[in-house]
């Protein structure tokens, strides 16, 4: 049940997409953290998180985004989120994440918000 996977994919516009799948809670956050760390290590700051297959996110999971956002923005990049199902969006929304992050319905919209390179 607590299966969680991250698939990283690079788009043509130099945006790295993290496709989250499954259940993100305190036990599975290290997987996501590792993905972020690797991107930051490679100085890839344009990060798009596609949440199409993310079924649940706990407060610990939300914490991962908070942990990296400052470094990403300091590298003049951003973390943008897309394709959330309503339940997951509700969790983000309750906490006020839409005020802190771009959360948009589709990956393309999110990519567009990065602007050209």
């Amino acid at each position: 049940m607590s299966e969680f996977k991250v698939h990283v994919r690079q788009r043509e516009d130099d945006i790295h997409v993290l496709e989250l799948r499954g259940y993100l809670d305190a036990h599975t956050t290290p997987v996501l953290e590792e993905s972020f760390q690797r991107l930051l290590h490679e100085k890839k700051y344009r990060i798009l998180v596609n949440c199409r297959e993310l079924t649940y996110i706990s407060s610990a999971g939300l914490g991962v985004f908070m942990a990296f956002i400052e470094d990403v923005r300091a590298g003049s990049g951003d973390i943008k989120l897309s394709d959330m199902n309503p339940k997951v969006f509700n969790i983000f929304d309750l906490l006020g994440f839409p005020m802190l992050y771009d959360i948009v319905p589709t990956e393309e919209e999110a990519a567009a918000k990065f602007g050209a390179r």
Binding site: S59, M66, E70
Partner: peptide, 12 residues
């Protein structure tokens, strides 16, 4: 709280 809490933690 901001002055003492770590980056990834928050309180609702």
């Amino acid at each position: 709280l901001l002055s003492s809490i770590d980056r990834r933690s928050f309180i609702s």
